[in-house]
Lab assay of single mutants.
Amino acid sequence: FSITQFVRNLGLEHLMDIFEREQITLRVLVEMGHKELKEIGINAYGHREKLIKGVERLI
């Protein structure tokens, strides 16, 4: 299971460039909250919320 699959499953594949540029893996994403996601350029609250909720389902 990769970050690419995870992001695609959430319908947020347009954010993949950010994850690749910042070298974010699923392991790193698990540790990130709204503040960190915003810092790397994910400005939409809804997108950040989707990512965080998606990660919570993985754990």
Rank of each mutant, 00 (worst) to 15 (best):
F1K: 07
S2I: 08
S2D: 14
I3T: 05
I3Q: 01
T4L: 15
T4W: 12
T4K: 13
T4E: 14
Q5V: 11
Q5M: 12
F6C: 04
F6Q: 00
V7H: 00
V7D: 00
R8Y: 14
N9L: 14
N9A: 15
L10E: 03
L10I: 08
L10S: 02
L10P: 00
G11W: 01
G11M: 05
G11L: 03
L12C: 05
L12I: 05
E13Q: 11
H14F: 15
H14N: 09
H14C: 14
L15H: 03
L15V: 06
L15Y: 10
M16K: 08
M16W: 07
M16V: 14
M16Q: 09
M16T: 10
D17K: 13
D17L: 11
D17T: 12
I18Y: 06
I18D: 02
I18G: 01
F19L: 07
F19D: 00
F19G: 00
E20Y: 11
E20A: 11
R21I: 05
E22N: 15
Q23M: 10
Q23Y: 07
I24R: 02
I24L: 08
T25F: 03
T25G: 06
L26I: 09
L26R: 02
L26E: 02
R27S: 13
R27P: 11
R27I: 10
V28I: 13
V30R: 13
V30N: 06
E31C: 14
E31Q: 15
E31W: 11
E31M: 14
M32L: 08
G33V: 03
H34M: 04
H34S: 03
K35Y: 08
K35S: 10
E36W: 06
E36L: 04
L37I: 03
L37H: 02
L37T: 01
L37D: 01
L37V: 02
K38V: 08
K38A: 10
K38D: 06
K38T: 10
E39D: 12
E39M: 12
E39V: 07
E39Q: 13
E39W: 07
I40L: 11
I40H: 04
G41Y: 04
G41K: 05
G41D: 03
I42V: 11
I42T: 01
N43S: 13
N43A: 12
N43I: 15
N43L: 15
A44C: 15
A44D: 15
A44R: 11
Y45Q: 09
G46T: 14
R48P: 02
R48E: 01
R48A: 05
R48Y: 05
E49P: 02
E49W: 08
E49C: 12
E49F: 08
K50Q: 10
L51M: 05
I52K: 04
I52T: 02
K53T: 08
K53L: 10
K53Q: 11
G54Q: 05
G54L: 06
V55I: 15
E56C: 12
E56D: 07
R57V: 09
R57Y: 10
R57C: 12
L58C: 08
L58K: 03
L58Y: 13
L58V: 07
I59Y: 10
I59F: 13
I59E: 07
I59A: 09
